[in-house]
C-alpha cells in the first residue's frame, strides 16, 4: 500500500490534537483524547481505519492503539446505532427495577445487546454504575443522563429520538 492511501485523521481533528499537545510531556498521553475525537468522527465507533489513523498521528503502532481501544468500555470496535443507550444495571439501579427496564428496552427494539436496529437508529448495552444512583433506574442516551426510568418511559424515550 502506498503512503498516500494510508488512513489519516481529518484536518480538524489533527488541529484539535495539536491544540492539546502543550498539555502533556508525551505524545502517548494524547491517545485517549484522540480516540474520543476519532470515534465521534467515525460515527461512534473505531474501525481499523480509525485506529491506523490515530496510530500514525501519534507515532504509535496500531497494535498499541488497538490494545488501548479494547481495554475501555466507551470505545467500540463494531458499528453502533445513531443513538447509543447505556442502561445501568448495577446494584443501586437493580434495586429500583433496572433489569425490568432493560427487558422492556430489549423487547421494544427487538435486537440484543450490541446489535443495531434495522433502521440504524439505536444500539444498547447494559452498563456498570454511571454514578447517578439517586436517579435509579437510569440510563445514558448518547451523552445525556435519563433518570427514574420505568419499563414504559424507556420506550417513550426511544420513540422520541430522531
Amino acid at each position: 500500500m502506498s503512503e498516500a492511501s494510508e488512513p489519516r485523521l481529518p484536518e480538524e481533528i489533527r488541529e484539535a490534537i495539536d491544540a492539546l499537545r502543550p498539555r502533556y510531556p508525551t505524545e502517548e498521553a494524547l491517545l485517549l483524547p484522540a480516540l474520543h475525537m476519532a470515534q465521534r468522527h467515525w460515527d461512534g465507533w473505531l474501525p481499523d481505519e480509525a485506529i491506523a489513523a490515530v496510530a500514525h498521528e501519534l507515532n504509535l503502532t496500531p497494535a498499541k492503539v488497538y490494545g488501548v481501544v479494547t481495554f475501555y468500555d466507551l470505545y467500540h470496535q463494531n458499528p453502533v446505532g445513531r443513538h447509543r443507550l447505556r442502561v445501568c444495571t448495577n446494584l443501586p439501579c437493580a434495586l429500583r427495577g433496572a433489569e425490568e427496564v432493560l427487558d422492556s428496552l430489549r423487547s421494544h427494539l427487538q435486537v440484543d445487546e450490541d446489535e443495531v436496529t434495522a433502521d440504524g437508529k439505536c444500539s444498547f448495552v447494559h452498563f456498570e454504575c454511571l454514578g447517578a444512583c439517586e436517579q435509579a433506574p437510569m440510563m445514558m442516551v448518547d451523552d445525556d443522563y435519563h433518570a427514574h426510568l420505568t419499563p414504559e418511559s424507556v420506550r417513550r424515550i426511544v420513540e422520541e429520538l430522531d
Binding site: 446494584l91 443501586p92 456498570e128 454504575c129 454514578g131 447517578a132 444512583c133
Partner: peptide, 11 residues
C-alpha cells in the same frame, strides 16, 4: 473517576 457503584458525590 468516581466509579465505585453507589457513589455519586463527586459528580
Amino acid at each position: 473517576d468516581e466509579s465505585e457503584p453507589g457513589t455519586f458525590k463527586d459528580r
